[in-house]
Simulated assay, not measured.
Amino acid sequence: MAMEAEFEAAVEDRRPLLFALGCLFAAWREIGKHSEGRLTLANYALALGLLIPMAALQFQQAVGFLFWAGGTPFAISSDGDGPNLYLIWSQNSAIPVLLMTWLLLGMAHLCLAWMLVEGDWPRIVKCGTLIGASMITLSLFMGVLMLDLSSLKTQVVELAIEFVAMVSMSRWHIRVLAGASCDWLAR
């Protein structure tokens, strides 16, 4: 009620935007002082700094297939003899499946970032499982088609980093919630 009264006074002085900016700056000063605020900032940092760039990497792989200029969009893992004529049809037929898998991975990372910011841990586990299964399927599928797996090396390393970060974040979330519930019960 005090905030509403201050806002009414700011409206009468024709400075509601200044009042709102002051409230925003005060909230930013206070957010780091509380464990829930630090957790929220860390969730946003992880979502914006790791998960969304991973989604962009997956979309980049898909776009690389769509705009490939010369023949098959795959680097064949042979000894430089040229493409294997027996595999070209299979590899070209696999392009739509690989595109869908990379698009699925990109969308799953965007969903994972959204769920992390919301703190929906059951859905985060399901989405993480989908990402892991899709990545394993993609690497197995590319291996069976004798495609160059070097494009997956960085993605596997980044997925491992993402997994460790998500486990750390979930533990931090549990500690913060346990502390908040103890504080709430003490009142």
Score class of each variant (00 low, 15 high):
P96C: 00
E8K: 10
M54C: 09
Q91M: 03
D148S: 14
I161T: 04
M115H: 14
L110G: 11
N92S: 08
T101S: 15
V167L: 09
L46R: 05
T137G: 10
E6T: 11
A42D: 08
I88C: 02
S150T: 15
A178E: 10
V144C: 03
W114V: 08
T40P: 00
S93D: 11
L57V: 08
L87Y: 01
A55W: 07
L145A: 14
W89P: 00
S90F: 04
M3S: 13
L103E: 15
G106C: 12
A75P: 00
A75C: 03
V167N: 04
V125E: 14
W68H: 15
V164Q: 14
L177Q: 12
R14L: 07
F163W: 10
S77F: 00
E12R: 08
L51S: 06
L177M: 10
Q155F: 07
D13I: 06
G80D: 04
C127K: 00
L66V: 03
V125M: 01
G143T: 11
P83G: 03
M54G: 01
E6Q: 13
L48C: 07
P83N: 06
D148T: 08
G64E: 03
V125F: 07
G143K: 11
T40I: 10
S139L: 00
R29I: 13
L41A: 05
M135S: 11
G64L: 06
A56T: 01
M135D: 11
I31W: 00
L149M: 12
N84L: 07
C23N: 05
T72W: 07
D183M: 10
H173Q: 15
F74L: 06
R14G: 02
A180I: 02
F163D: 13
H34G: 08
P96I: 01
D183A: 15
L152D: 12
V125R: 00
I131E: 06
P83S: 05
R14I: 04
N43R: 15
C182K: 07
M166D: 03
V144M: 03
V167G: 02
A178W: 04
S90Q: 12
F74Y: 13
M100A: 11
S170D: 05
I131Q: 05
A45V: 01
L17H: 06
M54F: 03
F59D: 06
V125T: 15
M135V: 01
R187K: 10
L98A: 10
L17A: 10
R187M: 11
V176G: 09
G22V: 03
L85K: 04
F65I: 04
K153M: 12
L98F: 04
A42K: 14
F65Q: 00
L138Y: 06
R171E: 07
F163E: 14
V11R: 05
A94I: 01
G106K: 07
I88V: 15
G119P: 09
I161V: 03
K33R: 10
L145N: 15
R123V: 12
F141V: 05
W172D: 00
T40N: 02
S134D: 10
A62W: 05
I136W: 06
